[in-house]
Design a binder for these strands. Structure first.
Lengths: 185, 185
DNA sequence: CGGCGTGTTGACAACAATCAAAACTTGTGG
DNA sequence: CCACAAGTTTTGATTGTTGTCAACACGCCG
């Protein structure tokens, strides 16, 4: 865990996030005055790296100054900080999970995300239109993928707008295993 | 400007962002416990809407409770909050500007973003590899687009790794005007 | 019933990924 | 200073994926 937070004095820094299957995506670039290292403050593991893109000069800030903000603030306030933090990491994951890869992969990742955020075994299935707007693809494309997944039994409707999924099979789509099998006789 | 902040008790809310040219992109979905309305706190205009996806129950929080956080906190602390906020809106724009549309549009938006964040008239031009990782396209695709823009004189190299742009012509690419002209004899 | 929104499907065109190769840069050691 | 190696950028040919347009199915509600 990073012991310090830095402000950038000059230069450009990229925030890089790596997917489990190896591909990388830059989720933000940071310049003068931006804070690097905030993401690591809440003890959650740091799943991205800050990498310089050219010569960078930084100013180191002891982390204690930041964490003292929490100590001093009353309970509700730290609560708000936590949620603010949550929104940020959620935005990063949105970029790497839902705006990267082909249509099938994106839909698969969205379904798993919806599944994981639901307490229930089933989850609210958005309209194809909304799915498209989340994934940066067209309504028709998301419809085609969902229809195929339903035919294969990987997605099942349990109510009007609720569905449940076969997580294992979906994972193979994301990991690209199904893309590789044709080469394995 | 929204006078309140809400916590979601149950249901799903989508954060929708509209581009000037009309297309919409959902930049986040929010569920139980998430705070809606934080983005509007710093007085910047709210360029996205929060729209319910199903029946939602919320709990209203007076904005004063949130803003008091700033008054009570010493100067450095509010500074941190501002930057935290900045990171969030930046992440949202990253999704709508750099992960939406075809390769040409994405590159054009990235160049304008780089131009705008630079004090100078020129700006640091990333490697094609990094551009690809920012935009969710391949190295070759970003190279092809940049090469074409250089041939057309829309992008000019002023140093090894610094460039400047013809903002007006780039804007037409984003607005899709060049896509329409073929239909206009 | 009939209209409306949503979902599905297919044919085709547009677009981007992939693979391979050449041109160009940069850095290194002779 | 040159030559060579390594990395980056550019380009072209080809394949695969996605967008577009159009049609139809389905369920819902007045």
């Amino acid at each position: 865990m990073i012991p310090y937070v830095y402000t950038i004095r000059s230069g450009v820094v990229k925030l890089v996030q790596r997917s489990p299957n190896g591909d990388v995506r830059i989720v933000r670039i940071m310049g003068q005055g931006d804070l690097v290292g905030l993401e690591a403050l809440d003890g959650g593991n740091l799943d991205h790296d800050a990498i310089t893109m050219d010569h960078v000069s930084v100013c180191r800030i002891p982390k204690s100054i930041i964490t003292s903000l929490r100590r001093e603030a009353p309970e509700l306030h730290t609560n708000i900080l936590n949620r603010w933090q949550k929104a940020l990491t959620s935005a990063n994951h949105w970029i790497t999970n839902l705006s990267t890869g082909n249509a099938k992969e994106r839909v698969a990742r969205l379904l798993i995300l919806l599944h994981n955020t639901s307490i229930d075994n089933s989850f609210f299935l958005p309209t194809r239109d909304d799915m498209g707007a989340m994934l940066g693809i067209t309504t028709e494309s998301s419809s085609k993928v969902i229809a195929e997944l339903k035919r294969k039994g990987i997605v099942r409707l349990v109510e009007k707008k609720r569905a449940c999924i076969d997580q294992v099979k979906l994972a193979t789509i994301i990991d690209g295993i199904d893309k590789l099998t044709p080469h394995n006789p």
